[in-house]
Amino acid sequence: MTSARHYSVPGVPGLAVGVLDIGLACCSLEIAAAVTAGLLVPAEAGAADSSILLVSGTVTDAMAPAVMAAWNDLSEPRRGVSFGACANTGGPYWDAPTVLKGIDQVIPIEVYVPGCPPRPEALIAGLTELAAR
């Protein structure tokens, strides 16, 4: 489960990302859309200088330990990206007693991508933001 996929980002030279995509809800479709639209291009492993945990979708309390385990298994240096309203703050499920109010409660997040869901372009903008940091 914890082997990351590697991508390069056309339009952002030098950005190579190893992404472990944890798709928990509908936002995950936008990650797939980014790949099929050519915004993320599968690349050789080893080009990336850090691993990224990309959390998209609703994180329930029941699922949180699995996300934490994925984070802990990721090789250093590792960076966390939260994609979409659910992962950011709980989003539409902000009042649900069984949903985490943001994935940053359990793992460190460096970039928060807004949207419900965010567009695939917003993912690229977020990754660019992360690379520039």
């Binding site: 329930t60 309390d61 029941a62 649900a96 007693p97 069984t98």
Partner: peptide, 10 residues
Amino acid sequence: LRRTDEGAPT
């Protein structure tokens, strides 16, 4: 979803 049996049905 719940980790315990406590609480009313959601």
